[in-house]
Design a protein around this nucleic acid. Structure first.
Lengths: 152, 152
DNA sequence: ATTGAAAGGCGCCTCAC
DNA sequence: GTGAGGCGCCTTTCAAT
């Protein structure tokens, strides 16, 4: 592959931004022993290289009324193109993420729903929109996602 | 439950921040037809209420050298306490997320690794640190996560 | 209770070094 | 990579609805 693109300071900066993306450049500068200008240039470079792909807010989906979480494991007919699975599933607003899998199942979709009826409707929609041979749904009781548990 | 905590403008603001958490308050203000001060107050309130839990950067893990993604499905002995599963798995740096499941399996762990040897070592570690009866690993070929595909 | 307007402080960004 | 300057944004206060 290519040579190593990031040094230890870059990794420190990324770690700090993952903790809190609203840190100021001068705050980061103090922690990594650089000037603010140097930190800004490094962050700009990381974005240009595509290492940092964006900035978002973490949200408590339960408080937004989307309290149900589930995984839908999908199996397709042999003729199905895997790339197009991701393409179409992406458009379902309930889909949080889509994973194509080596082996069985062929794909896993991470879903969020308002309630059980909504979840069932979403799975029905998945079944309709693909040439699916079978589905298996895992209902999530509790979840922890890295980086989403810092009440400051 | 409680009364509705968010109005349509709050949802708009959250959607805009999920697209790009670095938007300025005045930018958002223009889009939702409010003053910058009003937008800041609403964002502050959303944080106090715990609706917005944090701000992060999205990262291309493959470019950081963590190109392997997998799901480990875990089954435990009947005596195992589910809450402590999350507790201990959380400490494994390769664990991206942990889900406890109603039914079979008992838990699913979303893992990231540098390579296959690293993945195997991580799964071994999972097996050692819990009273596990069986594991099943799904290797991810390709993944899409909502909000992580905006090259701006 | 929530808003808009204006003043002050601070962080950003871009230079020259 | 560092330091300094000007500009823009965040932040707060205050009055009004």
């Amino acid at each position: 592959m290519a040579e190593e693109l990031l040094d230890a300071t870059d990794h420190e900066i990324i770690a700090l931004l993952r903790e809190d993306a609203r840190r100021t450049f001068s705050d980061i500068a103090g922690r990594v022993s650089l000037s603010t200008a140097a930190v800004k240039r490094r962050v700009d470079r990381l974005r240009e290289k595509g290492v940092i792909t964006g900035f978002t807010v973490q949200v408590d989906h339960a408080k937004l009324g989307w309290g149900i979480e589930a995984f839908a494991q999908l199996r397709f007919f042999g003729s199905t193109n895997v790339a197009e699975i991701v393409e179409t599933t992406t458009r379902i607003p309930e889909a949080q993420a889509v994973f194509t899998i080596a082996g069985d199942p062929d794909a896993v979709v991470w879903l969020r729903s308002r309630d059980m009826a909504h979840l069932q409707a979403t799975i029905d929609e998945l079944r309709r929109s693909h040439r699916i041979t079978s589905t298996r749904t895992l209902i999530v009781l509790d979840s922890w996602v890295r980086g989403e548990d810092r009440p400051e």
